Simulated assay, not measured.
Amino acid sequence: MELAVVGSSQFVTGFRLAGIKKIFEVNDGELETAVKTILGDRDIGILVMHGDDLSKLPEMLRDSINDSVEPTVVTLGGSGESSNLREKIKQSVGVDLWK
């Protein structure tokens, strides 16, 4: 399984420098199409995106992302970052690691 990152050029730059190969640099108009493509890619196990980008997606797609186990979608930045990551780990592993 691979790690993928989707977002603006500012968001993906650090991941690119860290050696992540599946980088999807998009503007707002391309975000929905890129996320749908990534969700359909069976080689991607984790998708990282900015929390503000998640809120820009249509509600049905956001619901699919929130229910997705594979790939697990992790948002960084924006509001609710720590609780989102905690819920995703709990959903993926099946155990709340913070208790």
Results as ranks from 00 to 15, higher is better:
residue 81 E to K: 00
residue 56 K to C: 08
residue 25 E to W: 03
residue 11 F to E: 03
residue 15 F to A: 09
residue 51 G to C: 08
residue 81 E to N: 01
residue 31 L to I: 12
residue 35 V to P: 05
residue 78 G to W: 12
residue 7 G to S: 05
residue 20 I to N: 01
residue 72 T to R: 04
residue 83 S to Y: 10
residue 55 S to M: 13
residue 63 D to G: 06
residue 84 N to I: 10
residue 77 G to S: 11
residue 73 V to G: 10
residue 7 G to C: 01
residue 90 K to A: 12
residue 75 T to C: 12
residue 91 Q to D: 10
residue 94 G to P: 09
residue 43 D to T: 12
residue 44 I to V: 14
residue 71 P to V: 01
residue 26 V to M: 02
residue 31 L to E: 06
residue 29 G to Q: 14
residue 63 D to S: 14
residue 36 K to I: 06
residue 41 D to P: 01
residue 68 S to C: 06
residue 30 E to K: 10
residue 6 V to R: 01
residue 42 R to H: 08
residue 78 G to Q: 15
residue 11 F to C: 03
residue 51 G to I: 05
residue 57 L to E: 09
residue 51 G to P: 05
residue 10 Q to W: 07
residue 34 A to I: 00
residue 9 S to T: 14
residue 31 L to N: 08
residue 71 P to W: 02
residue 73 V to Q: 08
residue 86 R to M: 14
residue 42 R to D: 13
residue 12 V to M: 04
residue 68 S to P: 06
residue 20 I to C: 07
residue 34 A to M: 05
residue 84 N to T: 12
residue 60 M to E: 15
residue 58 P to Y: 06
residue 11 F to P: 02
residue 97 L to K: 10
residue 24 F to H: 07
residue 59 E to H: 07
residue 14 G to N: 07
residue 85 L to D: 04
residue 99 K to E: 15
residue 85 L to M: 13
residue 39 L to W: 04
residue 38 I to M: 00
residue 68 S to T: 01
residue 78 G to F: 12
residue 11 F to N: 05
residue 6 V to Y: 01
residue 15 F to V: 07
residue 72 T to H: 00
residue 16 R to V: 12
residue 30 E to P: 01
residue 3 L to H: 09
residue 56 K to M: 08
residue 71 P to Q: 02
residue 81 E to P: 04
residue 74 V to A: 09
residue 41 D to N: 13
residue 83 S to L: 11
residue 25 E to D: 11
residue 37 T to C: 02
residue 41 D to S: 04
residue 74 V to L: 15
residue 67 D to Y: 09
residue 54 L to N: 11
residue 59 E to Y: 09
residue 9 S to Q: 13
residue 38 I to P: 05
residue 49 M to V: 00
residue 92 S to T: 13
residue 48 V to N: 06
residue 96 D to I: 11
residue 4 A to C: 04
residue 14 G to F: 02
residue 93 V to T: 14
residue 47 L to A: 07
residue 93 V to I: 15
residue 71 P to A: 07
residue 63 D to C: 07
residue 48 V to L: 14
residue 13 T to Q: 07
residue 91 Q to M: 15
residue 12 V to W: 01
residue 24 F to P: 00
residue 85 L to S: 07
residue 13 T to S: 07
residue 82 S to A: 06
residue 14 G to V: 08
residue 10 Q to N: 10
residue 10 Q to T: 12
residue 29 G to E: 13
residue 30 E to A: 13
residue 73 V to S: 06
residue 73 V to K: 01
